[in-house]
Design a protein around this nucleic acid. Structure first.
Lengths: 344, 344
DNA sequence: TTGTAAGCGTTATCAT
DNA sequence: ATGATAACGCTTACAA
């Protein structure tokens, strides 16, 4: 058994409550007593028991992290470790710990969240994704449990504190960038259609086309899951178009997918950027590693995580803070996968 | 405030202790009462409070995860998400939750571990790395706190349950593979020398050379941190050797590093596998994505994590289980970066 | 400024 | 088979 507050109290000849107050640095305890108690704590090697404290306080100083149902895919993506680093840093600065909800599918994860929340294991929750219909979000909302979302909520945008990029704008910027290079046939390869980020980026892409009076073609729009193979399938589809209708540039929703695209093009003998330009999203390590290095929209993943932690904790410390929408800036990082088209 | 065991007790007209026994499915409670109590729990939407339970039980059902001090680098590596998936699955199957120790440097992480452990936040700990001198390991060992290590402990191998590959054998197999292809000048590009895995793999490499009576050259051994740029520097060094002394094959300790190597070779106009073969480790997504796809030693990262969870939990459930050394199999996955040398 | 005691929601021991 | 009650280690009125 460990050293408890009582042991310290005895050792320092004070009451347990006094020790507790010293820990909390309560100003109404005399400096002499504080000194004495702190001495005793050192001497005995005392460490406060978080569990007991949590029970008394009704607060654990732990944040629950929720990944999307398809965690295996999500984990593969370099997005995850980076956002986790941000979350971790934000949490650590405020002495919060991070706990992962585990589970194989959405059902298991949902149950995990319910247990965490009702079981009082966590003070708040961060959703690392945003999708169209989400039981977990609904649940948290109904219970009025503190949570922050990374991404833009599909519903209740005004009621849910979230940290996000302006993905519509980012996709518009990306598309504009290609248009300004002179491209007119631009394809959009997006991710899972149930993710809000996909929807938003598609909107931005469309807006850019409209504004530039370029035609919008259904068969230029492809949706694949956020993974390598997705990129490969997509390319094959596009390359079945008649030569003169094939896109000269691609907006790809994810670096990993873009890498799949790149490899497939490579195998088909189509070269980047000479024959086709690629502009992707996320700017993870992958984009630098690719040959040619990919131009990519840097969405500042670390900051996404960092701010999510910060704002959730702020809310936990002061439940009065209003709902916030935090937008993290994005930036196009030009590398070597985007050039002007060799005209028609 | 939430529904407690007392509310359920009242609603079902029994004592709180009875409710508790129903939760534990204690056989000495009549089926009728169980039925009645369960009904009440459903009716009221009761969920047990983990914190209170933890306090009473002196056990949290939470496992602490410790990453190496240089977490930022570690997080970047695809190793991390994969091992996490394995850990998560093993934990989930046994209803354990995972909590991350956060911190920027080794000092902070050490303090985090101490707090976690002494604060009673976790029942056991998994170290996701193994390094040469490790305060954290020493601390856990001295306190006799349950933990499992992924990797091979530098000291006390017989006393510490760990899950590992046979890295020496794996590196020997890798080197042998190249030797059998006909290579005689083989370089080893390893990672951080403070990591035990690096040491082990180097040993395996040396053994292979010795057994094949190939000379061991200091200048063929390079150590870089486990990252992309590391690979680049390493290549430059090797390519400064006189033409006829340059290695024809490379054993690279990590896929990510191998990718750096590959790109640099590419830029130098050296082609793989024609001019130089590359065999790397880990077989993460990266190795498939590379061009040419990299031959790699699959070390079964997922299983590493899965078994670590399993064995720690086994130990937690039954403190009597003896120390174990669990070896996860490895396998060379041949792709296109390894060929026989164009013999000079 | 400090001590006493109740309470946080469980579990477990001892009665009955 | 079930109920009372103490205990887990801490916090926080309320007293002194």
């Amino acid at each position: 058994m460990s050293i408890t507050i009582k042991d310290v109290a005895k050792y320092a000849n004070v009451a347990p409550s006094t020790v507790s107050r010293v820990i909390a640095n309560n100003p109404r305890i005399s400096d002499r007593t504080k000194e004495k108690v702190r001495e005793a704590m050192k001497e005995l090697g005392y460490h406060p028991n978080f569990i007991a404290r949590s029970l008394a306080n009704q607060s654990t100083q732990v944040i629950g992290l929720v990944t999307p149902g398809s965690s295996d895919v999500f984990f593969q993506n370099p997005f995850f470790p980076t956002v986790l680093r941000g979350l971790s840093e934000g949490a650590h600065e405020n002495q919060y710990a991070l706990q992962l909800v585990t589970g194989q599918n959405e059902e298991e994860i949902y149950n995990g969240v319910v247990q965490m929340v009702q079981g009082g294991r966590v003070d708040g929750v961060i959703l690392l994704y945003s999708k169209v219909e989400d039981r977990i979000l609904m649940y948290l909302r109904e219970r009025n449990f503190p949570f922050v979302m990374i991404g833009k909520p599909f519903n209740f945008v005004e009621e849910i504190t979230h940290v996000d990029n302006d993905n519509a704008q980012a996709a518009k910027d990306a598309t504009d960038f290609l248009i300004e290079l002179g491209h007119e046939r631009i394809s959009f390869i997006g991710g899972d259609e149930n993710l809000v980020v996909t929807v938003e980026r598609l909107t931005g892409y469309e807006n850019a086309l409209t504004q530039a009076s370029l035609p919008y073609r259904e068969d230029y729009i492809l949706h694949q899951s956020f993974l390598l193979e997705g990129g490969q399938d997509a390319v094959c589809e596009l390359m079945e178009l008649p030569l003169m209708e094939r896109p000269t540039a691609l907006v790809v929703a994810d670096d990993l997918m873009a890498l799949g695209v790149l490899n497939t093009l490579n195998e088909l003998g189509i070269s980047v950027p000479e024959d086709i330009s690629i502009l992707s999203f996320n700017n993870v390590l992958t984009s630098e590693m690719a040959r040619p290095p990919l131009s990519s929209v840097d969405i500042n993943i670390f900051n996404l995580g960092y701010n999510a932690s910060k704002h959730l904790i702020e809310r936990l410390k002061n439940p009065e803070v209003p709902v916030k929408r935090v937008i993290i800036e994005h930036e196009i990082v030009k590398r070597f996968s985007t050039e002007a088209p060799v005209h028609k």
